[in-house]
Computed example of a mutant assay.
Amino acid sequence: MKTKSNIRVGISIGDMNGIGPEIILKSLQDSRILELFTPVIFANSKMMSFFGNYFKIKLQFHGISSADEAVEGKINVVNVWKENVKVNFGEEDKKIGGYAIKSLKAATQALIKKDIDTLVTAPINKNSIQSNEFNFPGHTDFLAQELKGDSLMFMVSDNIKVGLLTDHVPVKDVSSKINEELISKKVSAIHESLKKDFNVREPKIAVLGINPHSGDGGVIGKEDDEVIKPAIKKFVENGKFVFGPYAADSFFGSKNNANFDAIIAAYHDQGLIPFKTLSFGKGVNFTAGLNRIRTSPDHGTAFDIAGKGIAESSSFTQAIFMGISIFKNRMEYLELTKNPL
């Protein structure tokens, strides 16, 4: 029987030709962590033993057929497949990508059924995962389909939190994707997440401009004046602390980000370049806005160092504990806000 102190953390294996298996093992090698949570890896117990031997990280794995069989005090491995799989570190391989998706789908179903409390996803390769059965640019879009709510890529660390209006969208299409409805949806998701997932009572949110210098009054584009400002005005009229649009080039250098609980960037690189510069190795990718909790490290498969035993696991470890913290905060929030009658 699961207790509040026995949080089940599901882990999808990611691309096995990348650094995913290594950082998972390194994050679990301290036996004391089993007192804090119960790991449930979605892969194959023989494969996990192979990785343990390869990286000289001796761990004991408890093979199970489904997540609801997970045992406290053990590193549980749900055997998603039975066959042996040949791994070639550093290589892009559609077959390996297929196993990454098998792991992700099994973990997501366990999350939906509440057999696990949170999900941490190891990195995948966006090319290797594409198939007739899986046609998503990444984890976030797939989870948005499978789980309830409006997903939002929310990059978080102890010192900075950055959300995106658009994520995996070509730069040439960014401005056409952004409208008042999208801004309203994304800002609302950030606002709600800050309150229930991070215990921020009155969130202060900054919105970055789409164009250089936020358009310079229309000289360098009209989107900031015609789309972003009216959307922000509606939040202010409803009593929310939402400010902007701010010129992105000077916002982080001036440390203005320290004045806000979260920043919303217009597109991927506008938000992730400063975030990773300030928080690399300590940052976590959290999919906010959904009815279940998913986190991941702030980096990719790192094929160039895969199999060399030198991958840094700090971001993956942080993703595990960030997920646990968010789960606890969300349970507390639900308890405090539920109708006593």
Rank of each mutant, 00 (worst) to 15 (best):
residue 202 E to T: 10
residue 227 V to R: 02
residue 168 H to R: 15
residue 222 K to R: 10
residue 183 I to E: 03
residue 213 H to A: 01
residue 178 I to V: 10
residue 120 V to N: 06
residue 135 N to M: 04
residue 153 M to K: 12
residue 215 G to V: 08
residue 165 L to D: 08
residue 124 I to D: 03
residue 129 I to K: 07
residue 201 R to I: 09
residue 225 D to T: 03
residue 207 V to L: 04
residue 147 L to Y: 06
residue 186 K to R: 08
residue 150 D to S: 10
residue 197 D to N: 08
residue 184 S to P: 07
residue 168 H to W: 08
residue 117 D to S: 03
residue 143 L to C: 15
residue 125 N to I: 15
residue 177 K to L: 12
residue 174 V to C: 09
residue 234 K to E: 00
residue 138 G to H: 12
residue 230 P to V: 01
residue 145 Q to D: 15
residue 186 K to N: 08
residue 198 F to Y: 08
residue 216 D to G: 05
residue 184 S to N: 14
residue 218 G to T: 05
residue 205 I to V: 11
residue 210 I to A: 08
residue 216 D to L: 04
residue 217 G to F: 09
residue 185 K to W: 03
residue 211 N to L: 15
residue 218 G to I: 11
residue 221 G to T: 02
residue 186 K to M: 00
residue 122 A to P: 10
residue 192 E to H: 10
residue 121 T to N: 11
residue 136 F to R: 02
residue 133 E to K: 15
residue 123 P to V: 07
residue 169 V to K: 02
residue 222 K to F: 04
residue 216 D to P: 01
residue 228 I to D: 03
residue 118 T to F: 13
residue 131 S to N: 00
residue 154 F to L: 07
residue 175 S to P: 01
residue 235 F to W: 08
residue 182 L to T: 07
residue 171 V to S: 01
residue 117 D to M: 11
residue 162 V to S: 03
residue 224 D to N: 01
residue 155 M to H: 10
residue 185 K to Y: 02
residue 156 V to A: 13
residue 165 L to F: 09
residue 149 G to L: 13
residue 182 L to D: 05
residue 220 I to E: 10
residue 224 D to M: 04
residue 164 L to P: 00
residue 190 I to A: 02
residue 227 V to H: 00
residue 163 G to A: 14
residue 188 S to Y: 00
residue 207 V to W: 14
residue 187 V to Q: 05
residue 142 F to G: 07
residue 180 E to W: 08
residue 197 D to S: 05
residue 170 P to L: 12
residue 150 D to W: 04
residue 219 V to K: 14
residue 236 V to I: 11
residue 156 V to M: 15
residue 123 P to D: 12
residue 189 A to R: 06
residue 143 L to I: 11
residue 178 I to Q: 01
residue 221 G to H: 01
residue 159 N to H: 14
residue 175 S to L: 10
residue 217 G to A: 14
residue 200 V to W: 14
residue 124 I to M: 13
residue 192 E to P: 00
residue 190 I to L: 07
residue 206 A to N: 08
residue 222 K to Y: 06
residue 173 D to G: 09
residue 212 P to H: 11
residue 178 I to L: 05
residue 148 K to R: 13
residue 131 S to H: 02
residue 157 S to A: 13
residue 157 S to L: 14
residue 209 G to E: 00
residue 119 L to W: 11
residue 235 F to H: 09
residue 178 I to W: 02
residue 220 I to W: 10
residue 163 G to F: 09
residue 227 V to E: 01
residue 148 K to Y: 05
residue 230 P to W: 01
residue 215 G to F: 05
